[in-house]
Every structure is written in C-alpha cells, then in structure tokens.
Computed example of a mutant assay.
Amino acid sequence: MPGFVLIVRARDDADPLMRVGITVSKKVGNAVIRNRMKRRFRALVREVLPEAGLPGADHVLIGRNSGIERPFDDLKAELVKALAKVKR
C-alpha cells in the first residue's frame, strides 16, 4: 500500500500552473510526525512534479500511516507511477 493518496483535478482554465496541497490527519501521528511527513512530501513534489505533473491541475497528497517509515526513493517511485496513471 502506498504511503499517500494522490488526487488530481484539472482546473479547466488557461493557467498552466500546477498547484499542490498536502494534508496529513491526526490519525497518522503527533505533530512532529505529521510535520516530518509534510516536509518529505514537499521535497518529493519539488523533485517529481515539474517533469511528471499535469499542467493546469491541482495535485493533493494525503498522507497515510505507512508514509513516514517508507524510504524516500520508494515514495518517489510511487508518485511517478501514480502521476503516470493519471496522465493516461
């Protein structure tokens, strides 16, 4: 099971800007864990989204329990795979 849920929605406007939202609920852990997870997601988005993201769309990452202990390279591969599915 991936460490996050990805939701992508096209805005249908003329702006090619990609917007990102990150959320991690209290079910995942305390504030320290949630903030660490958000920092990892921000770094992940900076690396992957410019090449693999959908222009003119909103991308939302929702953290899951397994996301904090998963290696960064695995999260990166999962995000690339999820974005490839969305592009199809």
Rank of each mutant, 00 (worst) to 15 (best):
A77C: 03
K81L: 13
V5I: 15
A43S: 14
M1P: 05
K38Y: 02
S25P: 08
K85Y: 12
I7H: 14
L79H: 06
P16G: 04
A43W: 05
K38F: 01
A43T: 09
N65F: 03
V28Y: 11
N30G: 14
I62M: 13
V8L: 07
R64E: 08
V8R: 02
D73F: 03
P55D: 10
P50V: 11
P71L: 04
V28K: 09
A57Y: 07
N35Y: 02
R88T: 13
A84D: 12
K87M: 01
I7S: 14
N30R: 10
K76M: 07
R9T: 12
P16H: 03
D15E: 07
R42A: 02
D15K: 01
G21S: 09
R39N: 07
V32G: 00
R64I: 08
E78T: 09
P50M: 10
K26H: 10
D15Q: 05
L54A: 13
R64K: 15
R88Y: 00
H59Q: 08
A52S: 12
G29A: 06
G29L: 05
D58W: 03
A82C: 03
P50A: 10
N30D: 12
L17R: 15
V20I: 15
A84T: 14
D15W: 00
R11F: 02
R42D: 01
A31V: 12
G67D: 07
G56K: 04
V45K: 01
K76Q: 15
K38P: 00
R19P: 05
V32P: 01
D58K: 02
R36P: 01
G67P: 03
N35H: 12
V45Q: 02
